[in-house]
Design a protein around this nucleic acid. Sequence first.
RNA 1: GGAGAGAUGCCAGAGUGGUUGAAUGGGACGGUCUCGAAAACCGUUGUACUCGCAAGGGUACCCAGGGUUCGAAUCCCUGUCUCUCCGCCA
Length: 423
Amino acid sequence: MLQINIIRQDVARVKEKLAIKNFPGIELVDKIIVLDDDRKALQLELETLQSKVNSHSKTIGQLIAKGQKEEAENAKKSVADYKLQIGELNVKLAETEKLLLHELVKLPNLPSDKVPAGKTPEDNVLVREGGSKPHLPEQALPHWDLIKKYDIIDFETGAKITGSGFPLYKGQGARLQRALVQYFLDYNTAAGYTEYLPPFMVNEASAYGTGQLPDKEGQMYYMPADNFYMIPTSEVPLTNIYRDEIIKEENLPVKMTAYSPCFRREAGSFGKDVRGLNRVHQFEKVEIVQLAHPGKSYDALEEMVTHVEKLLGSLELPYRILKLCGGDMSFTSALTYDFEVYSAAQERWLEVSSVSNFEAFQANRAKIRFKDQNGKNQLLHTLNGSALALPRIVACLLENNQQENYIALPGVLHSYFGSGKIG
RNA sequence: GGAGAGAUGCCAGAGUGGUUGAAUGGGACGGUCUCGAAAACCGUUGUACUCGCAAGGGUACCCAGGGUUCGAAUCCCUGUCUCUCCGCCA
């Protein structure tokens, strides 16, 4: 959520920035400012009355103490009138605040100055490419065939147990998941990230704090009996660790990593994008999150990009890094780099990580702050990225490394996997 | 799931209807003393919103949400969480 004060400071700039994100409701900005003006006026009126009630009440107390009962009774009567007005104003103010918040949460984060203009993924800017694409033989198989050939992932039985998009990993397939998670966590903690194992369900306040609610409600699995949401990413519990907290400046940046399964309803997805491991309802992911000083968040972002890049390099997968254009960025992000690996058998790029700086957008809603050197509380910047999401990494590992009778695994995984190959 | 106890500032912990945004202690910060430090002493030490050019005001907040009252940290209701006991259980 954008800070209302920042919007008010430079309305023209806010509108300009929203245009880069191709936000269709620019006029919302003016509406919000009018609502905020109303709010201020109502608040002033209300507080003036409350102030009167308070001072009268004090007087009444003193009168009673002196035994002047009649004067006290008269004073009580005069307060009753204020109380009526206060009641009405309270209702109006609450309505206005609700409306203001309702509109304010509709505004996406402002893109940073570094974000290129553009509308579709074609407008994303290629930052770097790395690794080399393998030359596969004619009869190379896509991963959905390879998993059957080696009997390592069973979608049909997963569908029987739960439903479509809930893969059942088996044997070496299950072990590969464990090996990758372990490797990623070790890699992240070696870089100074503190490892967590968070709850996989969160309450409403947490889902709201990181911005999953209210706009992405339909994408989460929901448990009505307890009002819990299954996490779509461990970013949610990790970031919410510091919700409503004030961090000491010397403890910045806060660097966290966690493995978790991720649950996504993916309502509305269809077609070849969802084939095999490309899009599933439950998948494993290791996430990195940073809470950074506002002046240092873009350095932190670059650091995270390098961190993920080296990790992909160590898996010996062909990758590329894209800087997302305004139109392809998420609602909450100020700057995002996407990491894609090349799936040789599908002959397409698959997104495996997305590293973003949210600036103060999440922190404003979740009230994540630090005390600066002047003793003033300031919002932090939040950043996160995947390091890494497993399914598409697995798809590429299988496809790109397929041999006639086995699948070769990159050297870094051998000790974790207990073998150098599948099959 | 059943029974009971509790939730107050950075921490501990008073406070059971009237200048209480909150005693006291600890911590932290500033100062005095000291060559320096410790000790001692003095002082400072919440957040959000809002009015104001400023100085300086106002309002709200003692888990959360309602209620009673002229007035609530204090009384009532509901919820959440924590602890203890019982039950169940990997």
